[in-house]
Write a protein that binds this DNA or RNA. Structure first.
Lengths: 218, 218
DNA sequence: TCTGGCTCCGACCGATCGGTCGGGCGGCAG
DNA sequence: CTGCCGCCCGACCGATCGGTCGGAGCCAGA
């Protein structure tokens, strides 16, 4: 694979990521995509066997970037609670730097059955990456619960909310800014988001049972 | 409009909501939709002028259901903090009862430019509903801040996270259940979610700056 | 200079897209 | 019974869909 090939390949992925993030898999045609990449439509099929393969490659690339940021933290030498803090930092950073990723990922998570079972012979690469990330954070939670750092009952709940809120936040675009009354991506906003997430984390994971209203009020 | 017409109309909207929620606007064709509704394709165009109009009608119906649940609470006689609690309850209930709504709404929020500016002459009904809901919660926040019930700086942030996390949660389907290790929609899960959201709310809006980790632990 | 292998392209394929058209059918007012 | 009107349909339209094919241009090794 020489430079020209690699360049076209990368250019296609780049352009495709932007377009798929904006209008989704079904909403973007190969013609439009080719034109945006400065190629003929046939050339796309030289680099990727089919539209589905191209889309999966795009999703996989996004997940790979996230994984690369987030996964090394899991094995660090530190208490689970601190690793979880850093994990959140990394996740927020990853999305803040490339907000299109958040949109694409949000769509992709809900498009599973947009072409399910079909073609897609061994496109599991993307799925494997997603499973890696989810399994990683799940294991981290279990470690924290075993070590008594987290409240067992609500840990998955809290992290689920955390991930959802983060992805949603950076994907929300103008709607989010309208409610927020300010920019989503300024350095300050990113810092504020990290702080908010960590507060939520510590509150949700470490606080006393606090299950609504019964509690051991002796 | 006699009964038969009304029935077809409603049936179409119902079927369309389910399909659009699963595969998005561009992913569902009028043929498929007609077949699912038990009609000929031409008949769809008798009830709705175009595909875009049908889609907007579906989105508007979803937003109307949410608005209907959520809006009356704003004018109740109660402290802002309590109204916000009830607002969250209503939002969670609305999505929990019809989880397809959450998916559709999540997609719709990010599909604005899927057909932007185009056809769509006066389809603002959906947009108006959305603006109503967002303005309503924004006003409630302002009331709470003026009354000193909320911390002014972070209120919009917190509510943005709240809405995002709630929609994401109920839209997340199997991916969410995988991370959670259990069902999303059981009565217990819904209760737990409400509790979690309210905790987050009170912590985020009312607590002291709460710089992470000091705490009274002697 | 010839040759094999790449990257790329224009032209073309059958299928499907959103949308239109003319008419069939049934109930209801006259 | 007749005429009209609202609901529905099959057949059809041009445009676009994802994908294929044969070859043009180019560079490397002989």
């Amino acid at each position: 694979m020489n430079d020209a090939t690699a360049n076209s390949h990368a250019k296609i992925l780049e352009v495709a990521e932007a377009l798929y993030a904006r209008r989704g898999f079904a909403g973007v045609g190969m013609r439009e995509l080719a034109e945006a990449a400065g190629l003929g439509k046939s050339s796309l099929f030289h680099h990727f066997r089919s539209k589905v393969q191209l889309y999966l490659a795009v999703v996989e690339r996004v997940l790979a970037r996230v994984e690369e940021r987030v996964q090394p933290i899991l094995t660090a030498h530190a208490p689970a609670a601190e690793r979880l803090d850093r994990w959140i930092d990394a996740l927020v950073d990853a999305f803040a730097e490339q907000p299109a990723s958040a949109r694409l990922l949000l769509r992709a998570l809900f498009e599973e059955d947009e072409f399910d079972a079909a073609d897609w012979p061994e496109g599991q690469a993307a799925e494997r990456r997603l499973a890696n990330v989810l399994d990683g954070i799940t294991r981290l939670l279990q470690q924290g619960m075993r070590a008594g750092e987290f409240r067992a009952a609500s840990a998955p709940h809290v992290v689920q909310t955390l991930i959802g809120a983060t992805i949603y936040h950076f994907a929300s675009g103008e709607i989010g800014e309208r409610l927020l009354g300010g920019p989503l991506l300024s350095a300050e906003a990113v810092r504020a988001r990290k702080a908010e997430m960590k507060q939520f984390l510590h509150y949700g994971l470490a606080a006393r049972p606090a299950s609504s209203d019964e509690g051991g009020q002796s």
